[in-house]
Write a protein that binds this DNA or RNA. Structure first.
Length: 309
DNA sequence: CGAGTTTGACCAGCGC
DNA sequence: GCGCTGGTCAAACTCG
């Protein structure tokens, strides 16, 4: 991807909106201290306000333009990403020699998380015959980055699983573990977990079917699997049948700890560092399409209000 | 003692 | 039909 496609998204969000105004007031108060008898004429104050208004308008316009550019950039990137995904999935289908794995591709939802670099989805409708059951069952695939030293084939997703088999497959030296959902006796969901052949630190969990019960609450999970260090996960983010990019696994040293650490850092940081952190957070937020959309709405609303003045 | 895991045996689908 | 492979079963084993 060419670097020319990248746009500087670090918006000057006017983090301290009263900065200029304060400056003016400060100048004013300093002047007052020096010469308390001289009062700023009302007209002058009005002119200052108009000037401030114009400055804010110009800033809003600039932000709106940047948002538009950002939106276009985001769409371009998304399109490019989808193209890459399509190419990848085609390659996967053509190289796959597995009988049943082929049919998985018809309804597979591949969800990547932990480092979020493999999120994709694919569907290919003419590469193989489709047995009926393959269409009926929902198949999701998730990738979990784990500690390479951790040899366990455990993907903690909040559900209760019972292992019923393990097998070494031909195309992968690491064994594949077979799990059934044991939270509800009649739950048809099965899970296969195997380390990625390319990257042994990545666990590939394949879910088949849909849970016919509610996601176990954290307390239920704690009761059912006291030794399993499962933290609460939202239903939507863990249901294999409901693929989402917001899946978050509780990996040691994962996002949870990181966020905690960050909070700690924020608590401890002096004001200057906090300012830098705020600016970093603002930069991160501007990369979020939801945020940019909300910001655009807010700006347009604000502009309307300003124009009414 | 019960629940969960391990592991060898068995079964079924597919290619040759 | 035979062999290979993935998936499942179930007895044996482990652990709390």
């Amino acid at each position: 991807m060419g670097s020319s496609a990248w746009v500087d998204t670090t918006l000057d969000l006017n983090i301290n909106p009263f900065h200029h105004r304060n400056k003016a007031l400060r100048t004013k108060s300093e002047g007052e201290m020096a010469d308390s008898d001289v009062k700023l004429p009302f007209k002058q104050e009005n002119a200052d306000l108009v000037e401030e208004l114009n400055r804010i308008k110009a800033e809003n316009k600039k932000l709106t333009e940047m948002l538009t550019a950002l939106g276009h950039c985001y769409n371009d990137l998304q399109n490019k990403f989808m193209e890459l995904v399509t190419i990848n999935s085609e390659n996967e289908v053509s190289t796959s020699k597995k009988r049943k794995a082929e049919c998985e591709d018809y309804s597979t939802n591949m969800i990547g998380f932990s480092n979020g670099n493999k999120e994709t989805s694919c569907s290919d409708e003419d590469s193989c015959k489709v047995p009926r059951e393959c269409i009926k069952t929902t198949i999701s695939r998730i990738y979990v980055r784990t500690n390479p030293s951790d040899n366990s084939l455990i993907v903690r997703d909040g559900y209760q699983w019972r292992k019923y088999g393990q097998k070494v497959t031909k195309d992968n030296p690491s064994p594949r573990a077979y799990f059934k959902c044991s939270f509800a006796p009649s739950c048809p969901v099965k899970k296969k977990v195997q380390r990625s052949a390319e990257d042994p630190s990545v666990l590939v969990a394949t879910y088949e079917g849909e849970h016919n019960h509610a996601h176990p609450s954290p307390s239920e999970v704690a009761i059912l699997s006291p030794k399993c260090n499962v933290k609460p996960v939202s239903c939507a983010s863990t249901r294999p049948s409901a693929p989402t990019a917001t899946i978050e696994l509780m990996q040691p040293g994962g996002y949870g700890d990181g966020a905690k650490k960050k909070t700690q850092e924020v608590d401890d940081a002096p004001a200057a560092i906090q300012q830098v952190l705020v600016q970093h957070m603002a930069a991160s937020l501007t990369r979020n399409p939801n945020f940019t959309a909300a910001l655009a709405a807010a700006i347009s609303g604000r502009e309307n209000r300003i124009e009414k003045w």
